[in-house]
Amino acid sequence: MRARLQTPLIFALLTLAAWQAIVMMADIPEYLLPAPSAIFASVDRSLAVQLAVTFVEALIGFVIASALAFGCAIMFVRFHTLEEGLFPIAIAVKTTPIVAVAPLLVIWLGTGWWSKIVAVMLICFFPVLVNAVKGLKAADAEYRELFQTLGASRAQEFRKLRIPYCLPYLFSALKISSSLAIVGAIVGEFVGHPGARLSHHGVVGASRNGNPVRGDRSRRIGGDHHVLRHWMDRTARHLLAQR
């Protein structure tokens, strides 16, 4: 384990050192590119909290999306009609940029956890789906014939052949979508967040250097004005009025 960490660690330190050296030698002003030392100096306890919040959002979205995508992939491979019908829709959803959808998510779901989690899910779902479908179909036709000659059921074919065969595909997909999950969470926070989150720090120092746009606008879009809560309030009032 130590040997595996050593090399990346050394390269990370070298990169930081080079960054520091360039900033210092070229005398680049902090508002253009702060040196690593300046960034570390500004780190406080709130960053850790916000980091944790973003991480948890990303993790929950990632887990739900991956599980859903894998379930979908099994259904797609089992029932070909589903794949034919739903894959184009999945592609359409994927093609819509997450930055375009994120503000809508805030309007629909509010500024709380769920708008971020759904943003993460939208971005994580597709890579897992595509790779899992590919992996579940990866076993040679001859292997399936072997299972047929042994009298295996469809469920056994999935459990003992297709799913184990799919695992390498699945893990490479999870590798891709785990990093996308962080992007999804930050985009979700970017367009609407009630309080402190990582995106405050995201563009390092920007909000500290007098650029308060995001926080205020998101508060205006989100807060109590989002459609879903409005609709629920209205329905609740109607119901109460009828009684």
Binding site: E142, E145, L146, T149, L161, P164
Partner: peptide, 14 residues
Amino acid sequence: RIGFMFQKPLLLPW
């Protein structure tokens, strides 16, 4: 009971 053996071994690698 019919057993079948293919040209390839088709062993499960795991």
